[in-house]
Design a protein around this nucleic acid. Structure first.
Length: 510
DNA sequence: ATGTGC
């Protein structure tokens, strides 16, 4: 059965995975055998393994057997995605796969630590003021999520062209009022083109701007500093650093302060990244049709390009352009959120803890050779002492791993352990869906969701919190984290407890 | 995910 068939069956809630079963190998690890190649590594406790539906497993097998793929890791938050499961890592030294990077190029998390004690936002009125100050500056929602920017932070066409080519360069940060030091708090503050130059990106951008679907480039650039919709959000948190000596030490190195307010953001490359990604899917699918190349497992979502081909070069350039937009988008959002806090509580100071993606392909060294590591709903997890962190603020400790859970149960900051080599230096990217959006709307009810927020004294900008985004639509976050910890991939540094949530509510009553 | 859906 190929994935297209599986997709059709899923729409009727009938999936039938007929491949081999999982081999249980440990409390939190398992192997999913494939016919002719080494097995897929699965990280998840027994309870988590039961959440993997048939289509998800089928997609994992299809991705593992696709041309040039040498490793595939399935994380505890895995569920079906575009071509490959959301929550997987796919490695290839020879091929690039746009589908397994995903439709939202460089969808990421960022965390801003503020110097406010939790008590400063205890008053619901203060939190209401913060919600409105933040919403004024960082719109949510599809399309219309364009910022009404004051002159000092206006993104005109020429600044737009500069920032998608340069990413968070000093010049770009200065133009937008972003502290330049924040660039050092990024997993990647900029992305180069296929030949490791910015020139390649400038050239590619010129070509793209001639395209009809890029005629609204200036409008796309105006979306800079906005969240968008779906599972994207901004969330005000109180930091609870773990009790162990290591947690306290690492939290200190990360710049996290126990008991203080922080702000967690989740968003990506908005309409610009979507244009680039969907344009590439279409383009490569047409090439496959035109040249009569067989699709991996017959799945159009798994089209690929061999490295060195014009197609691969163009994709890598487009991915970098989208990734640069996402990077500056996150940093600007954080600058605007800080500004909103300062408006409501004058004198507030804040610094970026980290900005890290979970939808991107990076050139890394795997099994001692260079390869493209596609993280599709997966977060890089490199422990302290690893050569690739030399020169960063986190060379000794390992970098922060930012994992959204849900507003009811909290989110987490983790740090990688030595064992992460087994998962290609990756962990999950959050809790992962357990109910599809349609399913969630059918089986969950608004009153329960509302009372969960009321009980936790968690405020929101939404009159009705979107039901398909309710905590119960996601996997048990503690079980997901237990999977990561007991597999030796990463350790918990801090929990983040939600105090208010900013989300797009425009589709809440569909 | 997305100026939203074959």
């Amino acid at each position: 059965m190929n994935t297209s068939t599986a997709n059709r069956q899923r729409s009727n809630d009938r999936t039938t995975y007929t491949g081999p079963g999982m081999i249980a190998t440990g409390e939190a690890t398992a192997l999913l055998p494939t016919e002719t190649t080494p097995p897929i590594k699965v990280f998840g406790t027994q309870a988590i393994r039961e959440t993997f539906d048939d289509l998800c497993l089928q997609q994992a097998v299809n991705s593992r057997l696709a041309p040039g793929v040498t490793d595939l890791v399935l994380n505890p938050d895995a569920h079906c995605g575009y071509g490959a499961p959301v929550g997987c890592v796919m490695v290839s030294p020879t091929h690039i796969y746009p589908g397994p990077v995903g439709v939202d190029i460089k969808c990421s998390m960022s965390l801003l630590q503020l110097d406010l004690p939790a008590e400063a936002i205890e008053d619901r009125k203060v939190r209401r003021q913060l919600i409105s100050a933040i919403c004024q500056r960082t719109p949510t929602g599809a399309g219309k999520g364009q910022r009404n920017a004051e002159k000092s932070r206006h993104v005109n066409r020429s600044l737009g062209r500069q920032l998608v080519v340069e990413g968070a360069s000093e010049d770009v940060c200065e133009s937008l009022g972003i502290p330049t030091s924040w660039a050092f708090r990024c997993e990647d503050s900029f992305h180069l083109g296929h030949d490791d130059t910015t020139d390649a990106l400038g050239t590619r951008l010129e070509k793209l701007l001639e395209r009809r679907d890029m005629s609204n480039f200036s409008d796309k650039m105006k979306q800079l500093g906005s969240y968008g919709g779906g599972n994207h959000f901004g969330e005000c948190e109180v930091v609870e650093v773990g009790q162990s000596d290591r947690a306290r030490e690492v939290a200190h190195a990360f710049g996290l302060t126990d008991g203080n307010v922080a702000f967690l953001s989740h968003c990506g490359s908005r309409g610009f990244g979507h244009n680039l990604a969907s344009g590439q899917f279409r383009h490569l699918q047409n090439k496959f049709d035109q040249w009569g190349i067989p699709l991996p497992a017959g799945d159009r979502q798994l089209v690929y390009a061999p490295l060195g081909s014009n197609e691969a070069n163009d994709y890598l350039d487009d991915m970098a352009l989208g990734a640069n937009f996402a990077t500056v988008n996150h940093l600007l959002i954080n600058a605007l959120v800080l500004e909103a806090f300062q408006e409501v509580i004058p004198g507030t100071k804040g610094h970026l803890v980290y900005f890290i993606s979970h939808n991107i392909a990076r050139k890394e060294s795997v099994n001692n050779r260079p390869a493209w590591v596609h993280r599709k709903g997966a977060t890089r997890a490199i422990p302290g002492g690893h050569h690739s962190l030399v020169g960063t603020p986190f060379a000794k400790t390992g970098h922060p791993i930012l994992l959204p859970g849900n507003p009811r149960d909290g989110s987490a900051v983790m740090v990688a352990d030595e064992g992460a080599e087994a998962s290609c230096y990756s962990v999950n990217h959050g809790a992962g869906r357990v109910l599809g959006r349609r399913h969630a709307k059918r089986v969950l009810d608004q009153t329960t969701v509302d009372s969960e927020f009321e009980c936790g004294d968690i405020l929101s900008n939404c009159r009705q919190y979107p039901i398909d985004e309710a905590p119960a639509a996601y996997k048990d976050f503690d079980e997901v984290l237990r999977s990561v910890k007991s597999a030796g991939l990463a350790s918990e540094v801090a929990r983040l407890k939600a105090r208010f949530v900013i989300k797009d509510a425009s589709k809440a009553d569909d």
